[in-house]
Amino acid sequence: MVVRKKVDPAEVRAAVLAVADWLVDPSAPTPSRAELAAAVRGTARTLEQLAPGNSVEVRIPPFVAVQCIEGPRHTRGTPPNVVETTPRAWLELVTGRLSFDDAVADGTVDASGHRAALVAELLPLVPLR
């Protein structure tokens, strides 16, 4: 089991605020890879800490994949419950700018398995006003 240091909420919020202009206005300059990675990884690891477990894998390539939500654990191969999306869509979800259901409906989020939708109950993580 990988043991990560606790996520600092202030650092996560700062990382999200660093990319907020781009989330609000797609024509704004694209954040640097480091800024984007910090926001994506910080929010994903926040989710992992809020809902520890191994029944759902959340993938935001190319930056991070985390496991969360208590329940049956998978040990080999592709997990049965997966949420996968782009960095931008993930940040829109965690800031409340995009709903999970809308994202799944329009194909922005690929959610498979009956437990994948449980992630939606934990969102948004860092609401933008």
Rank of each mutant, 00 (worst) to 15 (best):
M1E: 10
M1N: 13
R4F: 12
K5F: 05
K5Q: 11
K5M: 10
K6E: 08
V7E: 15
D8N: 14
V12K: 04
R13F: 04
V16S: 04
A18P: 03
V19C: 11
V19M: 13
D21S: 13
W22L: 04
L23C: 01
L23T: 09
D25Q: 09
P26Q: 08
P29F: 00
T30Q: 11
P31W: 09
S32R: 14
S32E: 11
A38P: 02
A39W: 03
A39Q: 03
T43S: 15
A44C: 12
A44G: 06
R45Y: 11
T46Y: 00
T46L: 13
T46I: 06
L47S: 09
L47W: 05
E48T: 03
E48L: 03
Q49I: 02
A51F: 05
P52A: 08
P52C: 11
G53C: 06
G53T: 05
N54P: 00
N54Q: 12
N54Y: 03
N54H: 14
N54C: 12
N54R: 12
S55V: 11
V56T: 06
E57W: 00
R59L: 01
I60W: 03
I60P: 00
P61E: 14
P62Q: 12
P62N: 13
P62L: 04
F63S: 11
V64N: 04
A65W: 01
A65M: 08
A65Y: 07
V66A: 10
C68W: 00
C68T: 15
I69T: 15
I69R: 13
I69M: 15
E70L: 15
E70R: 15
H74K: 14
T75F: 10
T75R: 14
T75Y: 10
R76M: 08
R76E: 12
T78G: 01
T78N: 09
P79T: 10
P80R: 07
P80V: 07
N81T: 01
N81H: 14
N81Y: 03
V82E: 06
V83D: 02
T85R: 06
T85E: 10
T86Q: 14
P87I: 09
A89C: 13
A89H: 11
A89Q: 08
W90M: 03
L91R: 07
T95D: 07
T95N: 04
T95Q: 09
G96N: 02
S99P: 03
S99V: 07
D102Y: 12
D102W: 07
D102V: 09
D102L: 10
A103T: 08
A103I: 04
V104S: 02
A105I: 10
G107A: 07
G107Q: 01
V109P: 02
V109K: 05
A111G: 07
A111V: 03
S112G: 03
S112R: 12
S112V: 06
S112W: 00
H114I: 02
R115Y: 05
A116F: 02
A117F: 02
A117C: 09
L118R: 09
A120E: 13
A120H: 13
A120T: 03
E121A: 15
E121G: 12
L125C: 08
L125A: 08
V126A: 07
V126P: 01
L128K: 15
L128S: 07
R129H: 09
R129Q: 10
